[in-house]
Simulated assay, not measured.
Amino acid sequence: MTDLPERLRARRSGSKVTEDAPRLDELRELVEAAGHVADHGALRPWRLIALRGEARHRLGVALAEARGDSKPSSKPLRAPLLIAIVVSPVASKKASAWEQEATASGVAHMLSLLLSDAGWGVMWRTGDAVRTEAVHRMHGLDVHEYLLGWLYVGGMPEHAERKKTKKPRIIDGESFLTVIDG
C-alpha cells in the first residue's frame, strides 16, 4: 500500500467513465469522511445532491434553458452519477461568506479525492450555467443557496487504470512555497 502523498500524486481527473457508480451506502460513507474538513464554527454550510438516471436528463434541459437552447445538453449524461456541490450559507458572526464557501469547496475536493482513492473516476465540472435560475430551480435550491458545480462520477475504464501507472506530473513545492522566518 502506498502512503497518502503518493496516492494524491497519482490522482487524475476521470473525464471518461463507465456506467458503474458507487452505491448509496458507499457514497454516504465517503460523504461522512469528506465532511471533516476545516469548518470555522462547525456550521456545515454545504450540502450535496446526487443526480442519477432521469435527473441527469432534467439537468440537461435546465442547462439548455439557461443557454437559450431548445435541445437539451448531453453533458450530464457523461457520467452515471453527478454530485451537485451546494453552498448553503449560515448566518454567522464567526465565519464570513467566503469561509463558508471555502468549506463547501473543501468538502467537494475531499470527496473527489476519496472517490478517486476508492477507484472511481471523478471530474469536477462547472460552467457558465452553474449559477443560472434554470439550474438553480432544477436542483430545488433555497434562495440563499448556490452551486459550485458537479462531481461527475463513474467507473474507471481499463485504459485509465493503465494511465494511472504512468509517472505523475511533478509539482515543484519550492516554486509554490514562500517561507517567512523571523
Rank of each mutant, 00 (worst) to 15 (best):
L30I: 08
V31Q: 00
V31Y: 00
E32P: 03
E32C: 08
E32V: 07
E32D: 13
E32A: 12
E32R: 14
A33S: 07
A34Y: 00
A34E: 00
G35Y: 01
G35N: 02
G35E: 00
H36W: 06
A38H: 10
A38F: 09
D39A: 06
D39Q: 06
D39F: 08
H40Y: 11
H40F: 09
G41K: 01
G41Q: 02
G41V: 06
G41N: 01
A42K: 13
L43W: 09
L43V: 09
P45D: 03
P45N: 02
P45H: 04
W46T: 02
W46S: 02
R47G: 06
R47L: 04
L48W: 09
L48K: 11
L48Y: 11
I49K: 10
I49E: 04
L51K: 10
R52W: 14
G53K: 12
E54F: 13
E54T: 15
E54H: 15
A55S: 15
R56M: 12
R56A: 13
H57W: 15
R58A: 14
L59C: 09
L59F: 05
L59H: 08
G60P: 04
G60K: 12
V61T: 13
V61G: 04
V61H: 06
A62F: 01
A62V: 03
L63R: 09
A64L: 05
E65V: 12
E65D: 12
E65C: 05
E65W: 03
E65L: 11
A66W: 12
A66F: 13
A66N: 12
A66C: 12
R67D: 09
S70R: 11
S70F: 00
K71F: 02
P72V: 03
S73F: 05
S73D: 02
S74V: 15
S74N: 14
K75A: 14
P76Q: 11
P76W: 07
L77Q: 15
L77V: 11
R78Y: 08
R78M: 12
R78V: 10
A79G: 01
A79V: 06
A79P: 00
P80Q: 06
P80H: 05
L81I: 04
I83D: 07
I83V: 15
A84F: 04
A84C: 05
I85Y: 01
I85S: 12
V86G: 04
V87K: 09
V87C: 14
V87A: 12
S88L: 01
S88F: 01
A91I: 13
A91K: 14
A91H: 12
S92P: 14
S92G: 10
S92T: 14
S92H: 14
K94Q: 15
K94D: 12
A95P: 07
A97E: 13
W98E: 13
W98A: 11
E99D: 08
Q100K: 05
Q100M: 07
E101R: 14
E101G: 08
A102M: 11
A102C: 06
T103H: 04
A104L: 00
A104M: 01
S105W: 01
S105L: 01
G106I: 14
V107M: 01
V107S: 04
A108D: 03
M110W: 00
L111K: 00
L111H: 00
L111R: 00
